[in-house]
């Protein structure tokens, strides 16, 4: 097989690995990609990312812990997945099964957690949301956010979950929140 054909087949394989959900949670670990695509899997992923840009998609890498200068082993442990390249239209998100209330509550949770250094007492967040929603609904919503991976819960504290890291530009959310309504 020529080098070009080999590269092309590896890009196809990478697209299949990333787009087809094999486990309960979407995405593929770096080491799984390395096993399937070889040592230079990050180069393949970079080319795939350029190809996906044509369809408004991108490859998102979620590191398991905060890293400023990721190394090869950080990539191996990271989760690779395909996400929208640009923010989704609210109508599309609503069609996917979300309600306005749920999205609003998620926005509140993520921005509050982010502003308080990444972790908030569950009770504090419940009290805040209970100003806008019945308490029984707040409890159900938080449970759902944790189940879907948008939030993590540990020792009665909530933090930002893997799915939020993948799907939400947290700093942009806070910036948009602060500037919302001030321009007009």
């Amino acid at each position: 097989m020529s080098e070009r054909a080999d590269l092309s087949s590896k890009i196809e394989r990478a697209a299949q690995l990333l787009l087809i959900q094999r486990h309960r949670r979407p995405g593929v670990k770096g080491w799984e990609l390395r096993r399937s695509l070889g040592r230079r899997y990050l180069d393949i992923i970079k080319i795939l990312d350029e190809e996906l840009a044509k369809f408004g998609l991108k490859v998102k890498v979620v590191f398991m812990e905060e890293v400023s200068e990721p190394r090869a082993e950080d990539y191996d442990r990271a989760l690779f997945m395909v996400t929208f390249r640009y923010p989704a239209k609210i109508t599309d998100v609503l069609t996917a099964g979300w309600s306005i209330d749920e999205l609003g509550a998620l926005a509140a949770c993520i921005s509050i957690i982010n502003s308080r250094g990444g972790s908030v007492r569950m009770r504090d967040l419940e009290d805040l949301l209970a100003e806008k929603l019945p308490r029984w609904r707040v409890e159900l919503l938080l449970e759902r956010f944790v189940r879907l991976g948008y939030l993590d819960v540990k020792d009665d504290h909530l933090s930002i979950g893997w799915r939020s890291k993948a799907e939400i530009d947290v700093d942009l959310l806070s910036l948009r929140l602060i500037s919302y309504g001030s321009s007009g």
């Binding site: 999205l103 509140a108 309504g181």
Partner: peptide
């Protein structure tokens, strides 16, 4: 967060939301 309605918050979230495609 307290001053905005849930609908406004939802619109803000969607400006920063890039859902997973799978």
């Amino acid at each position: 967060v307290k001053s905005l309605s849930l609908s406004d918050l939802a619109h803000v979230l969607c400006q920063a939301l890039r859902p997973i495609a799978s």
